Simulated assay, not measured.
Amino acid sequence: MVQRVVPDGCSDVLVFADGEAVFAGPALCADLVPLTAGTHVRGLRFRTEALGPVLRLPAEELRDKTLTLSAVLPDRVMRTVAEQVWAGRFPDVLRPSPIDARVRHGVRELFVTGAAVGDVADELGVTERHLRRLFLDHTGMSPKAVQRVGRFQRFLHAADTSRAGLAELAAATGFADQAHLTREVRSLAGLTPGALRRERSGMQPPGSGLDGLR
């Protein structure tokens, strides 16, 4: 099968049964992943604000990248992480350094409520430029990108659980209008909203109707 992986603000360590281990960074576009029958994979997911503090790397460098885990972690650490993820345990070596409470709060406001970036910066007592630096270091994405992905995810949840039309869903999930919804879904998922909805409901096979996907 082919799995369409769409932006959700998170990052993952994926370990396959043959020992292959990969890191998938935060993304702003979709990826089509072919999976052969019998594929067995286990994973560890990083919350949006935890990527930089966990890996102790500038998270911005990992955006839109899928890498071997050895490209992200030293070999010895990589082997330990892969073994423990496969065993279903959180790797002790990935215990995060402290996560900035401002970033944690900002991510929640932008992702869940769709608050304006300027309003969040004002609430946290920082400039928009400083908020952007904090977000890039912690999440790999700008505040505006986190806001976009959150709005897109709110649309997906609403579309999966409601029979409402696209114009109604656009209004309910923070888009200016249906045209804005269509542009954003094309950019983030590679399909029109209607095609993506059909794909997710099983009415259209993944990868068909592909439009604008790298």
Rank of each mutant, 00 (worst) to 15 (best):
T182P: 00
V33Y: 10
Q84L: 10
V13R: 06
F111D: 09
D75G: 11
A176D: 09
H138K: 08
R154N: 01
M1K: 10
P143A: 02
V6Q: 10
L124M: 12
V54W: 11
R102H: 03
H157N: 10
D122Q: 15
T39A: 15
M78G: 10
F152T: 05
R148P: 00
L94M: 10
V2W: 15
Q3D: 13
L57N: 02
R214I: 02
R133G: 01
Q3E: 14
G106I: 04
R200N: 04
E83S: 13
G38P: 00
E128K: 15
A179H: 05
G202E: 05
P98Q: 10
T182E: 12
A195P: 00
A189W: 09
D8R: 13
H105D: 15
L67T: 11
L134N: 06
R79N: 04
L213R: 11
V185H: 07
S70K: 12
M141D: 03
L69S: 04
T39G: 01
C29T: 06
A171C: 02
V15K: 04
G125D: 08
V6K: 07
L67K: 08
V81Y: 10
A116P: 05
G150W: 01
V5A: 06
V72D: 10
L166D: 05
D211Q: 05
E109P: 00
Q3I: 07
L196D: 01
E60L: 15
L196V: 04
L156T: 12
T139H: 02
D211R: 07
D31K: 12
P206N: 14
H105A: 13
P91C: 11
M203Q: 15
L62P: 10
A59S: 06
T139C: 15
P206T: 03
R102P: 06
R200P: 01
V103C: 06
L14F: 01
G174C: 02
K144Y: 10
A189V: 02
D64P: 03
G174A: 15
R186G: 03
A71K: 14
A172K: 13
L210R: 13
A37S: 11
T68H: 07
R132S: 10
A30D: 02
H40A: 11
R56G: 04
L210Y: 00
I99N: 08
P26E: 06
V117S: 09
P34E: 11
V13T: 09
A170I: 00
R183N: 13
H105K: 07
E20Y: 00
V126L: 13
L134P: 08
A145I: 02
A170R: 05
R129L: 07
H138C: 08
Q147L: 14
K65R: 15
A71H: 09
G88W: 10
R63E: 09
G118K: 09
A71W: 00
R104Y: 08
S201R: 14
K65Q: 15
V2S: 11
H157R: 12
R200L: 09
L32W: 00
A158L: 08
E61Y: 05
R197S: 12
D160E: 06
G114S: 12
E83Y: 02
T113G: 10
S187N: 06
R129C: 01
L196K: 02
W86C: 05
G25H: 08
L94D: 11
G38N: 04
T139P: 03
C29R: 14
H138G: 04
P91V: 03
A189F: 05
V103N: 04
C10S: 14
F16H: 11
G106S: 08
I99S: 03
R63F: 01
